[in-house]
Amino acid sequence: MKKVYLFLFFVLSFLSTKGYAAEYYWVGGAISTNNNTLQKWRLISVSGSIPNVSPSANDNVYFTDGVISTTVSFNKGSIVFNNFTSNAVTKNYFFTLAASDGATKTLTVNGILDLSQNATFISSSSSGNEQKIGTLILNKSPKLAHNIFKLFLKFNKTNEWIKPTTGFESQGMYVDNSVNLDLSNLTIKINQFANTDTESGLVKVSSSNTILNLSNANFEVSKLWIV
């Protein structure tokens, strides 16, 4: 019997160290919008338990209806999640990359970014500079609903075609080396939401082994760099 208890103890200890993918649900709160605050999250559902650690690269994060706060600040310099789902219907969610200036402001979604029309990524700075606003990095085809990204959107290298389900607006767009990006039949607007910084309103395409399909696309852009 002691061996059984000992085995269960080690299993539970292993699970508690987060060596597995977990489902994190944002509940928010009245005081802080910092995503690193553990009390802002629940495991499995919005009524689940408070986690012991913040979500990370293996984890799926969800932003749903029925929560206290729908403003979410990602305060770490470099954040990685697996799937990122914001499917609220009655709540408007606002996400911002709010790390201190000088830090690398990136949010990487290795899995699927799935957004309802009530999800918006807003800027944490009045500057159009990428280092101040931040970059959302996508590794797979996002499920969008004509969303607005007041930051820089980067489509990262992958072994498959990337095709957003709808058009979108963003502060800037980067297409990495060896990316196959299909924007056909979509309306894409690259706007200078902030000031007229050199990077604001820019589309930058790394041409090495990159395929960009713009067939029948309505593509509005201020500046285009092919490097």
Results as ranks from 00 to 15, higher is better:
L136G: 00
N75Y: 00
G134H: 03
K40G: 09
V67R: 02
N129T: 13
N60R: 10
E169V: 10
T198D: 13
D197I: 08
L151Y: 02
T33N: 01
L144I: 07
I137D: 00
E169I: 04
N36S: 08
K189P: 09
V205W: 00
V89M: 08
A21T: 02
T64R: 06
L214C: 04
A21C: 05
A88F: 04
T198W: 08
L113R: 01
L138Y: 01
F7E: 05
S116M: 06
I44G: 05
N129L: 07
T108P: 06
N216Q: 15
K132L: 09
T85C: 07
L97K: 01
I68M: 14
F10P: 04
N139M: 08
S78P: 14
L38T: 13
G28L: 05
K163E: 00
I50Y: 06
V203R: 08
G102W: 00
S127P: 00
S47K: 15
S73P: 10
D176T: 06
I133N: 01
S141A: 14
F95W: 12
E130Y: 04
S69E: 08
F74M: 05
T33I: 00
N75K: 03
T135G: 02
N213L: 07
I44W: 06
P164F: 09
N34K: 03
G201M: 07
S206R: 15
Q192E: 15
T37C: 10
I122L: 08
S125P: 10
K3Y: 11
Y24M: 02
S116D: 10
V221F: 11
N147S: 06
T71H: 11
V4G: 07
D114K: 14
K154H: 10
T106E: 03
I211L: 09
A194M: 05
S215R: 08
Y174W: 07
A98F: 02
S69H: 10
S207Q: 14
K2G: 10
G172A: 08
V205N: 07
S125I: 06
S49W: 15
L144A: 04
F74L: 04
S13E: 09
E130N: 05
S141P: 05
N75E: 07
T165W: 02
G29N: 13
A145D: 09
G201S: 11
G102M: 04
S32H: 12
S45A: 13
I44S: 09
F81E: 00
S125N: 15
I133R: 03
E199R: 11
L202K: 04
L43G: 05
N209V: 05
V109G: 04
N110W: 06
N110Y: 06
L138M: 09
I112R: 12
Y24L: 01
G172K: 02
F219H: 05
G172W: 01
T158K: 01
V67T: 11
L202M: 13
N156P: 03
R42K: 14
Y5F: 12
